[in-house]
Structure formats: structure tokens, C-alpha cells
């Protein structure tokens, strides 16, 4: 047998490590979600903003820069290089670049760059949170995870907003609502409902992916497994304990969000 009951009693002597690991994993996930969500909102707003400096110049100085908006015969441009240059949005470009780079590189590489690169230049204070969480390891882990999930959440938010039929905005604007009111009262409430399953999935992914931070010495659940393995050569039993702990975190998370999903879909039922 690979799994022996007596080995569990050995693992039990490491109970406190698992307990602390569980707390670290929960805190990692919470802060990651927080950072990721705020970052994602900022990125999504940047991507969908209408910040177009060249077109703005055309409106403020029509005599000099009007050519960005209208061609020689006074017709509004609708295609071509000058048209696209006029609509160039540096904020959107930056956000898109960020999202694409973060989504196209392994999270392990990102964590190492943050930990060995960024946070060797920026010195972090050496203290313990709650007596057992080493801030100088925990903080880079949270930053790396948050930056990564921010990119994914941004895509989810953008897709959710773009999934709303254009007629909704047209109806709202034709009633006189400003664009911000349209977003707040019409688009976001509907988009949120559409993206909840994807957000729930992303939250669960964050909990699971946080395990990777043991590679930079964050003492989460996985690092407790490693500690048992290193000290006793028992591997399957601590892994099963870790499996159970992760499941107990992830499963309720998705169930709770599923509950909110049902509550928000009232308008769908006949």
C-alpha cells in the first residue's frame, strides 16, 4: 500500500505547520484576489477608455490638427492610416501590452522575476506577520500572483462588457443617460452576471496557483508538505492532507459564487 494509516499519525505531529500553511494560503488568495481585481478594473478601464490624444488635438485646435478628424473635403474620416492614428489610445495600448505579456509567460517565471529581480532592488522589511508569515517572502508572492490574475481578470471583465448587446447602450443613451450612467446602471449589472462563472473559476485558480509560491519560500500548505517530506520521507500522506485542504477551500468558494449567480439571474426566469 502506498498510503499507510500510521503515516498519518506522523503527519499529525506537523499539524501546526499545516494549520499555519492553511492560513497563509487563505491570506495569499485573499490579497491576490484584491490586488488582481483592482488591477483588472484599472486595466479594463484603460483598455476601454476613449483617451485619444490626436483626436483631442483635432477638437481643441481644429485649424492645425483638424486633419485627424476630417479629410481635405471636410468629410469625417472612417478609414486609413490617419484615421487610425487619430484613434490611437496610448492607455489602451499599454494595458493591452501588459495583459498579453502576462498571459503569454509562465507564472513561475513571473514569480522568480518579481522575487529575485524586483524585490532584490527594492528592499523589504524583515518581519513576521502574525508571528509566522515572513513578510519578505509573502509580499513578493502576493504581488506576483496579483499581477498575473489581474491580467486574466481584465480579460474576463472586458469580455463580459463586450458580451452585452449593443442595443442596450443605444437604448440607454437614447433615453439621455450619460456613458458613465449607462455603464453603471445598464452594462455593469448585466456584465457582472455574465462573468460570475468565469470570475468564480479565476478565484479557484488563484487558490490553487498560490501553491507555486512555496518555490520562493512562502510557507503555505505546499511548503508544509515539503517539510514533512524532507524530515520523514513520507510523501503520499501529507499530499493527501494538502489535497483535502485545497478542496475544502476551493469547493465552497465556487458554491458560494454559484449562489450569488442564481440570485442575480432573477430576470432570466419566465
Amino acid at each position: 500500500m502506498f498510503v499507510q494509516m500510521k503515516n498519518f499519525s506522523v503527519v499529525a505531529t506537523y499539524a501546526q505547520m499545516f494549520q499555519e500553511g492553511l492560513v497563509v494560503t487563505i491570506l495569499l488568495s485573499l490579497f491576490t484576489v484584491l490586488i488582481g481585481f483592482v488591477l483588472a478594473l484599472i486595466l479594463a478601464v484603460m483598455r476601454m477608455s476613449s483617451f485619444q490624444p490626436f483626436l483631442w488635438l483635432a477638437h481643441v485646435f481644429p485649424g492645425v490638427f483638424g486633419f485627424f478628424e476630417r479629410d481635405g473635403s471636410g468629410m469625417k474620416r472612417d478609414s486609413g492610416f490617419v484615421y487610425h492614428l487619430g484613434r490611437f489610445n496610448p492607455l489602451s495600448f499599454l494595458a493591452t501590452a501588459y495583459v498579453e505579456i502576462l498571459r503569454s509567460t509562465p507564472i513561475l517565471v513571473q514569480i522568480f522575476i518579481i522575487y529575485y529581480g524586483v524585490f532584490t532592488v527594492i528592499k523589504l522589511p524583515n518581519f513576521n506577520m502574525f508571528g509566522f508569515i515572513r513578510f519578505s517572502r509573502f509580499f513578493p508572492g502576493v504581488v506576483a500572483l496579483g499581477m498575473n490574475s489581474g491580467a486574466y481578470l481584465c480579460e474576463i471583465i472586458r469580455a463580459g462588457i463586450q458580451s452585452i448587446d449593443g442595443g442596450q447602450s443605444e437604448a440607454a443613451r437614447s433615453l439621455g443617460l450619460r456613458q458613465t450612467q449607462n455603464l453603471r446602471y445598464i452594462i455593469f449589472p448585466q456584465a457582472l452576471k455574465n462573468i460570475l462563472p468565469a470570475i468564480a473559476n479565476e478565484f479557484v485558480v488563484i487558490i490553487k496557483e498560490s501553491a507555486i509560491t512555496w518555490t520562493i519560500g512562502v510557507q503555505d500548505i505546499m511548503s508544509a508538505v515539503n517539510a514533512v517530506k524532507g524530515a520523514t520521507s513520507i510523501i503520499m500522506e501529507p499530499l493527501l492532507v494538502a489535497t483535502a485542504l485545497y478542496f475544502c477551500l476551493c469547493f465552497p468558494t465556487s458554491k458560494i459564487i454559484a449562489y450569488f449567480e442564481r440570485r442575480m439571474s432573477r430576470g432570466d426566469k419566465r
Binding site: 448587446d165 442595443g167 442596450q168 443605444e170 437604448a171 440607454a172 443613451r173 437614447s174 433615453l175 439621455g176 443617460l177 450619460r178 445598464i186 449589472p189 448585466q190 452576471k193 430576470g267 432570466d268
Partner: peptide, 21 residues
């Protein structure tokens, strides 16, 4: 334009009622 749109009611082919309200 928002001020002027208030004075122009519009009815669409596909109704465009807000489904969540």
C-alpha cells in the same frame, strides 16, 4: 448630446428593454 437625446424618444426594432430590471 445627452441633453438633446432626452427630448428625442427612440423605439427600436428589437425593443432593447433592460432585461435585468
Amino acid at each position: 448630446i445627452d441633453e438633446h437625446r432626452q427630448k428625442m424618444g427612440m423605439v427600436f426594432q428589437h425593443f432593447n428593454l433592460f432585461p435585468h430590471m
